[in-house]
Simulated scan of single mutants.
Amino acid sequence: MIVSGKLLVSLSLLVLVFKVSHGQPLVPALIIFGDSVADVGNNNNRTTLVKANFPPYGRDFVNHQPTGRFCNGKLATDFTAEYLGFTSYPPAFLSQEATGMGILTGVNFASAASGYYNWTAQLWGAISLDQQLNYYNEYQSIVVNMVGEAEANAIFSGAIHLLSAGTSDFIQNYYINPFLRGYTPDQFSEILMRSYSSFIQKLYGLGARRIGVTNLPPIGCLPASITLFGSGSNQWNIKLNQDAILFNNKLNNTSQTLQKSLPGLKLVVFDIYQPLLDMITNPSDNGFFESRRACCGTGTFETSVLCNSRSVGTCNNATGYVFWDGFHPSEAANEVLAGDLLAQGIDLIS
Rank of each mutant, 00 (worst) to 15 (best):
T47H: 08
I272W: 01
E151D: 12
W124Y: 13
F179T: 15
A81E: 12
S284C: 01
I272A: 02
A165K: 07
V144R: 12
G207K: 12
N45F: 02
F79Y: 14
L30M: 14
V40F: 07
S231L: 12
A121I: 12
R194P: 00
K266I: 10
F301G: 03
Y174P: 13
S304D: 07
L163V: 15
H22P: 03
N215R: 05
I349K: 04
T105D: 11
M193A: 05
F288H: 07
M193E: 08
G264C: 09
L262V: 07
D169A: 12
R209N: 05
F270C: 07
A150H: 04
L16T: 06
A76G: 09
Q140R: 08
S10D: 15
N241Y: 02
F79N: 10
I200M: 06
N137T: 15
S128C: 12
P185V: 07
E149W: 01
L162K: 00
E138T: 14
L129N: 00
G73I: 13
N215A: 02
N286E: 00
S21C: 12
S311H: 04
L228R: 09
F288T: 11
V268C: 09
V269K: 03
L180V: 11
G166N: 04
T67R: 02
T48I: 12
L162D: 00
I211V: 15
N252L: 11
N137D: 10
Y136D: 11
Q201A: 04
V15S: 02
M279I: 13
D347F: 00
D325S: 09
N72P: 04
L133D: 01
W124V: 14
P66W: 03
S195I: 00
N153M: 14
Y321V: 15
S261R: 01
S261L: 09
N334S: 12
V147S: 13
S197R: 10
E151R: 12
V20L: 09
F229L: 09
